[in-house]
Simulated assay, not measured.
Amino acid sequence: MDRNAFIESLTKEGFPDAVVVTREANVEMEIHEHPFEAKALILEGEMSIRMDDEVRAYRVGDVFNLPANKPHAERFGPNGVTYLVGRKQSGAA
């Protein structure tokens, strides 16, 4: 997906303005969770996300979506990763 189409999809899905995030090479973030839903487009580099027993790799042009409060681990590729991400707070239960 290209950047403009991604930003348009975020707007349609009610995400606030997206931000660019850069992570260092070969770093792994152990299992954690976020209080927001995240939808991101990989701009440079690559990363892997492990949720439950599944690991998925994401490269330039790929989009990933993480539900709010979903435990996951992240690993950034040998050249790090830069992604454009929208974050939407989960509703209070």
Rank of each mutant, 00 (worst) to 15 (best):
V63W: 08
T82P: 00
A25L: 02
M1L: 01
R75N: 12
V63D: 07
I7S: 11
K39I: 00
M29G: 08
G45E: 03
R75Y: 14
P35F: 10
S90M: 14
G45I: 08
L10G: 11
G80C: 08
F36S: 14
H32A: 00
R75S: 15
L41V: 04
L66G: 02
F15M: 02
Y83M: 08
M51E: 08
A93S: 13
S9W: 04
G86Y: 07
L41P: 05
P71D: 10
R50G: 04
V21Y: 02
A57K: 15
L41Y: 06
M51Q: 10
F64D: 06
I42M: 10
L84P: 02
D52F: 04
K39F: 05
P35G: 13
G80F: 07
E44T: 13
E46N: 15
M47K: 14
E44H: 14
L84V: 04
E37Q: 14
A68M: 04
N69D: 12
D52H: 05
G61D: 07
K88S: 06
R75L: 10
N65L: 14
D53F: 04
A18W: 05
A68Q: 03
M51N: 05
K39C: 09
E28I: 13
H72G: 07
A73F: 05
V19N: 10
E13F: 00
N69Q: 10
L41I: 06
G86H: 09
A18M: 05
A5M: 00
R87Y: 08
L10V: 09
G91I: 11
A73M: 10
R59D: 10
V63T: 12
F76R: 01
